[in-house]
Amino acid sequence: MASTTPQGLCIHPRQMDFELPDPLPRHWHGGDAFKSHLFDAMSLQFPDGERFFIDSVRYFREHIGDPQLRKQIRSFIGQEGHHSREHQVYSKRLRDLGYDIDRLEGHVQARIRFTQKRLSPQRQLAATAALEHITAIMAEGLLRDARHLEGAHPTMVRLWRWHALEETEHKAVAFDVYNQVCGNRSLLRRAMLMGTFFFVLDTSRGLVHMLKRDGLLWNWRVWRGGLSWLWGKRGIYRPLLGPYRDFFRDDFHPWQRDSLELLQRLRGEFDGAHQAEEANGPVPS
């Protein structure tokens, strides 16, 4: 299918230094253990996961003839590299609080080693395109609905909004590369099912570990409040089910869900006036 990525899309890597609180408040999300540790558990997957995404896309960079997509690949690499570094600092803060971060990250690292050793570059890229869709719909939900981070520590709010903004900007890069070098939709759907399983598994494993260390694993109020926040009548994850299912359509493309207006409205949080008007400046390759 032809890409529906908007012409002139700005994918702009931002060099950020958030100076995360040290020590990090254990329950930085408004004193709520479930909310804090759900975000914490997701963050633990990013340092190694983002590097995997970079490697899977970079492998095919020389196969791409479209100069605009090649430019977007460079910006994708720059953004994901910055994300990985910031979330490494986040992981260190959690490690300092006494959580077994090495064990939790070890599960992710072992799976990535297996994937890179046993699966073809095309299947690795399919996994990246699938997981990028998961992060993109979650990112857009976070940017549109203030309840995701309502009451959280201001620095943590800024970190997560920055990450969400850039994930939304580059949400179609891996997908467009995949379409150019492979395009097998059946392989893409299988990658989504597998990626969803492991994303939920790793997030749940981290959440359970940190609640257990806090002595709150069997506190039913913590679980009742957390699950209601996620999946209740006004749960923040419920609106994501439709966009998630869209991925399985034969004609799906990430930019069928138009978020350009959202990006234009929110870039001012992180960009200077001159940066907001730039397309793509020099970025790491």
Rank of each mutant, 00 (worst) to 15 (best):
Q180K: 11
R103A: 15
L94P: 12
D258L: 03
I101S: 04
I134M: 14
G281Y: 14
Y59F: 06
P154M: 09
F247P: 00
M194E: 15
H209V: 06
P243N: 06
V283P: 01
R249V: 07
E80F: 10
V57G: 10
A174W: 00
R113N: 08
F34P: 14
L230I: 01
T128E: 00
V222A: 02
R185F: 01
L24D: 05
S259H: 10
H163E: 01
R147A: 11
G206P: 06
S56N: 02
D40R: 09
T128H: 03
Q275E: 13
R245A: 14
D32H: 07
W218A: 07
W231R: 13
Q109E: 14
R58H: 05
R267E: 06
W28L: 00
G272L: 12
L24I: 05
T155K: 06
W160A: 04
P25N: 00
A126Y: 01
V181M: 03
E169L: 05
N280R: 14
R103V: 09
R185H: 15
L165R: 08
F60T: 09
H163Q: 06
V173E: 12
R70V: 08
A136P: 08
F197C: 07
R267H: 06
P13L: 10
R58T: 07
A130V: 06
R213F: 09
F34E: 05
I101R: 07
P21N: 01
V181A: 00
N219I: 15
D258V: 12
D48H: 11
Q88T: 13
N179Y: 09
A191W: 07
D102Y: 03
W160I: 10
R51Q: 07
Q15P: 11
W220H: 14
H82D: 15
F53K: 04
Y59E: 13
V200E: 06
R58N: 12
Y99E: 05
L217C: 13
G215T: 04
G49H: 00
G225Q: 13
R249E: 08
F247Q: 03
S204K: 05
K71T: 15
R190W: 15
S259L: 10
D32W: 10
R161S: 05
G226E: 13
L240A: 10
L20C: 02
F76V: 02
R95G: 04
L149H: 04
F18G: 12
H12K: 13
T4Q: 04
R85E: 08
L188D: 01
L266Y: 09
Q72G: 05
P25G: 00
D176A: 05
S120Q: 02
Y178N: 00
G281Q: 12
T203M: 09
A41I: 04
V173W: 04
M210R: 14
T115Y: 07
G206N: 11
R58M: 13
